[in-house]
Design a protein around this nucleic acid. Sequence first.
DNA 1: ATGATGCCTTTGTGATCACATCACGCGAAC
DNA 2: GTTCGCGTGATGTGATCACAAAGGCATCAT
Lengths: 190, 190
Amino acid sequence: MHGELGPGEALTLRGIGKTYDVSMTPARESVRRLVAEGALFLSSSGRVSTPVLSNERIEELATLRAMLEPELATRALPRAHFALIERLETINNGISQMVARHDASGYIRMNLEFHRTLYLRAQAPAMLAMTETVWLQLGPTMRALYGRLNRTEPPYHHRLILAALKAGDDPGLRLAVRTDATQGLRMLKG
Amino acid sequence: MHGELGPGEALTLRGIGKTYDVSMTPARESVRRLVAEGALFLSSSGRVSTPVLSNERIEELATLRAMLEPELATRALPRAHFALIERLETINNGISQMVARHDASGYIRMNLEFHRTLYLRAQAPAMLAMTETVWLQLGPTMRALYGRLNRTEPPYHHRLILAALKAGDDPGLRLAVRTDATQGLRMLKG
DNA sequence: ATGATGCCTTTGTGATCACATCACGCGAAC
DNA sequence: GTTCGCGTGATGTGATCACAAAGGCATCAT
């Protein structure tokens, strides 16, 4: 999810087991779970690797983000008090630091933490889980994206999201969230 | 997914293994996968059972269906030729048969087959997979629903869907799909 | 130099086992 | 009759093993 693995990287059960100092059994269960969630690709011969997403698949996942995340934001809006907005701003500052030190994985992690922190307020666990499944599928691809464009500015749309939250502006919030979720992925389609 | 198990039914790895004549290992992997998809509930002690959904969870899953399925229908619409509509009508007749013989599980299975047949035309595998995950989570609950109300009529909204498909009426299609997906679940909240 | 072919290593699969933990039921005490 | 406690059986976990299949690499022929 955090883009620590690039697209198409291969994994082996024994290798995972060695990395985390467990036997093949827990490694297998974890891998199967991630395959079930679409986070890993299972070849016909049973080998696993991170998925290489086609443009069509990326567009689909972007559409899913565009459908799910505004709904979560809307549900979180009435519960978004000052303490939450303050925490979001703190996370946003953290993102700027990650940008400064060119840490792609850290950038992705904090960016998602920003979104998750907001969506947790929506009190919609099934919807959030589904959204995180999409993030999971996009992880390796997002790393390739943020590696390609050398980001220098902190996220612009996050400021729009925060402004809409403060103003209680639901349509503005939905638009800002939707744009933030889909903007980066649009660049991958080139 | 098909409601062959009711809400809250317990499963054991050795029992599953015995049923399908395999050892615990494949049973475990299957169960873990279904847990990852939310189709099974994993207690803190590791026991698995079908989930008992709260009203809030049902409402959430209904919202997800209401968001995902109209989008799939819209994408399928331009590709829905006569052969597809004919197949949908055949399936619809099958549903009537299931209603006649009071086969709840068969009813659910054919109902979902109706939807899946349409959505397959959307050429959106990630979106369809996500939708099927929702169906999976609702399976046991849907059985409880269709068991409660003694259905005597074949699905009314399916006819609306077919009519909208024939007319190429996208807004009408979206509304019909959305209503069909959420109507039954609304009754569970009573 | 390039392509094919054969072997060997790596890898996933399913089964089985030992062990810790938990749940359920039985029995006893009040 | 009800409730608490204990013990036994059942259950999940992680490890290991034997096996089959697939991939990769080296060698050889053209």
